[in-house]
Design a protein around this nucleic acid. Structure first.
Lengths: 229, 229
DNA sequence: AAAAATAAATAAACGCTGTATATTTACAGT
DNA sequence: ACTGTAAATATACAGCGTTTATTTATTTTT
């Protein structure tokens, strides 16, 4: 057999490859990802994959983009589910969604925020849009607080030059956003990320989805420190 | 040639293997670590390594323990360098040491807090002592604040049961420590870790060792929130 | 409808990896 | 000097990502 007839082929092989990849990652962890194993599962040969992805890194990049998109969906859904005039509620919803997504899809989380694939080197330019979109929900809400004059920026320092060039890239993906809002949003992001990444990696005890005292405390701390009244 | 005579052998081959491994990790990144490449560098054959490490994971575990030890050295040195009655100074020194170590040895940092080695599965029991030691400096200082009645624990919630069993393991490595101190220390740790891990992974702009506005702001936030007067 | 072009798959092979097994030999203890 | 042990090599295996050449199903052109 050299090439199966169309009826026996898998339609949308590109998607099938990604699905098989996710299945492997979920089951055996990201580092176990193997093109040959994917091929075995789909009953094709390994080089056939190269018709759809130029190399393994391209496949991983596609997976990372999918993960960011999934993450962004949760973030944006959290932002939009809360009524638009209750900013506090929105901020908390986004915070909770961050951890819930990470606990629901720990492998996707690791794929994004860890570096669990053997020789993979990130293709930042390709990933950037989905990445920027996923953080946009948080940035938007912080900016809304700022616009409403409710953002406490008394102690927030001026933005340095290197920093400015970095966030300029982001600005094209969000509506207009104030440098001070960026600073606060990044602090929030870092705090939330700090707990969740320690928790996912097993350095913190897992409280489960409901027993999240430490996390809730931090969300509360964020509100008290950065939101007026 | 089957076995070189002793004069031509490398003394302390075990250490030489680890050194070569670190050299590779520093140069090409952790995922590129290869037993065969180490063997080539040391001009021995790959199976010879198995006389010193039962498998590759054992070598990685040894490297992780070394990394934790190095990290712990910096932490403890920071704790002890500040005069013992200036607790604020001690806390800040530990915080700065955390980031400085990470920026000095990004590969070691990734080895500990990322999961960058292909199929490596952590040997937690073996790593635990060096890991616990490295965090002990922070825990100690927080506990000192508590003992001096200067720890602000008003808003800190009661410790849950799952949490208690976890920190009981740590207690054997520190002197007596209060549950509330543990909670605060973990918050501090998570905050510091959040920024540094984003920074190391390139998700935050690198400010360099001096331009660390965001980090200094967080250290300041920690002091204001948790330290009285 | 036949022929040519294209695209998608296989087959085979290369060099790399970690690791197991058997073999050799330098060295230590008696 | 002999023997036993420990540390190295030699060889081999299976798996990996990837490259090249080949085959063939499908599409396009004549």
């Amino acid at each position: 057999m050299v090439r199966p007839i169309k009826k026996k082929q898998i339609p949308n092989l590109q998607d099938a490859i990604k699905e098989a990849a996710w299945k492997q990652i979920t089951e055996f962890g990201a580092p176990a990802l193997s093109l040959r194993a994917i091929a075995r599962e789909l009953k094709i040969t390994a080089p056939a994959i190269y018709n759809y992805f130029p190399d393994r890194d391209a496949l991983v990049t596609a997976l990372i983009i999918d993960a960011y998109t999934s993450f962004g969906d949760w973030q944006i859904e959290a932002r939009d589910s809360a009524s638009s005039d209750d900013l506090h509620n929105k901020l908390e919803a986004i915070g909770l969604a961050y951890r819930n997504w990470a606990l629901t899809y720990p492998q996707r989380y690791q794929l994004i925020f860890g570096t669990p694939i053997p020789g993979y080197t990130a293709h930042r330019e390709k990933v950037f849009p989905s990445s920027a979109r996923s953080i946009s929900a948080l940035f938007n809400v912080v900016e809304e607080f700022y616009a409403a004059g409710k953002l406490n920026i008394d102690a927030v320092p001026a933005v340095s030059e290197t920093y400015k060039t970095h966030y300029e890239r982001w600005r094209t993906y969000f509506s207009e956003i104030n440098p001070l809002s960026v600073f606060v949003a990044m602090i929030i992001w870092a705090r939330v990320h700090g707990i969740v990444s320690l928790e996912i990696q097993g350095n913190l005890p897992s409280f489960g989805k409901k027993g999240d005292a430490l996390y809730l405390f931090e969300l509360n701390s964020i509100s008290r420190q950065f939101i007026k009244e």
